[in-house]
Computed example of a mutant assay.
Amino acid sequence: MMREILLDTETTGLETALGHRIIEVCCIELRNHMPTGRHFHAFVDPGRDIDPDAERVHGISRASLIGKPVFADIADALLAFLGDDPIVAHNAPFDFGFLDAEFARLSLPPLSRARMVDTVAIARKKYPGLPASLDALCRRFDIDLSQRTTHNALLDCRLLAQVYVELLGGRQPGLGLVASRSSRAAGLAAPVARTQRLVVVTEAELEAHAAFLARYVKDPFWSSIDHSNGEPAANAG
């Protein structure tokens, strides 16, 4: 099965060139675009202050990060979880840029851009001219945003997992997808099982339908269709 990693980060600010750092990173494992329940999540002590504007967005204070591991402490585990698989992120160049800056400080190579899957780019291609923020896409796909009072990486990943499936065309009926116990335990978006049901129409219902149509339509063209094979009936004029 195809493996992908869905990723989100929170940072001290917007510019790596100004020395801003990662303070939270979350990754969710996907198989065939659906969460498996496996995830990686860590808060990071950036060793610097957080811009007030950034703190207002994600709600993470400098004080709350004192005593958390520094990025060097989580780098190996993060890289092991990422593996060599595609990485899905919303505004992926931002997250890739910050990860590359952290890896560079440790003399590690940058992430290959061939692995990048940017859901903002997908959304703008699918819905040109419409808002492509995560909030806007959640509203478009009727995904619950009630818990998103701030932007934190773990919740954003859970929301993006649902958005990503919808951007790819949604869950297809009849596939028999069932949420795994690990997905439910992790609180991740779970696929919905759907089944197809055959509806049998009785002769009485067919006669009532024909009588109803006769009141409004004279010689409807579909009366000449043999419904057993979809071809015109043999006695059609």
Rank of each mutant, 00 (worst) to 15 (best):
M1H: 10
M1C: 04
M1Q: 04
R3A: 07
L6W: 03
L6D: 04
T9F: 11
E10T: 01
T12S: 04
G13L: 08
T16C: 09
L18G: 05
G19R: 09
H20I: 02
R21M: 01
I22G: 01
I23T: 11
E24K: 04
V25S: 10
C26Q: 02
I28L: 15
E29W: 05
M34I: 11
T36K: 10
R38I: 02
H41I: 09
A42Q: 06
F43R: 07
D45I: 06
P46F: 02
R48C: 15
P52R: 13
P52E: 07
A54T: 07
E55W: 08
I60V: 06
I60R: 02
S61A: 08
A63D: 02
L65W: 01
I66N: 12
I66D: 14
I66M: 10
V70F: 08
V70L: 06
F71C: 01
F71Q: 02
D73I: 05
D73T: 08
D76Q: 06
A77F: 00
A77Y: 04
L78C: 00
A80T: 09
L82F: 02
V88A: 00
A89D: 04
P93D: 04
F94D: 06
F94W: 09
D100N: 05
D100H: 00
F103V: 05
A114T: 07
A114C: 08
V117F: 00
V120W: 06
V120Y: 12
R124Q: 11
K125N: 01
Y127M: 10
P128L: 01
G129R: 03
P131R: 15
P131T: 14
A132G: 08
S133H: 03
L137K: 10
C138L: 14
C138I: 14
C138A: 15
R139E: 15
D144F: 00
D144N: 13
R148K: 00
T150Y: 09
T150D: 07
N152K: 11
A153G: 15
L154G: 14
L155C: 14
C157F: 08
L159F: 03
A161T: 13
A161M: 14
Q162A: 15
Q162M: 12
Q162H: 13
Y164G: 07
E166S: 14
E166Y: 11
G169F: 10
G170A: 08
P173G: 11
L175T: 11
L177I: 13
R181P: 01
S182Y: 07
S182G: 00
R184P: 00
R184W: 08
A186R: 15
L188E: 03
A189R: 04
A190S: 04
P191N: 05
V192K: 13
R194K: 14
T195R: 11
T195S: 15
R197T: 14
L198T: 08
V199Y: 11
E205M: 05
H209R: 11
A214N: 05
R215I: 03
Y216P: 02
V217P: 01
K218P: 03
P220Y: 06
S224E: 13
N229C: 08
P232C: 12
A234Y: 10
A234M: 12
A236Q: 15
G237Q: 14
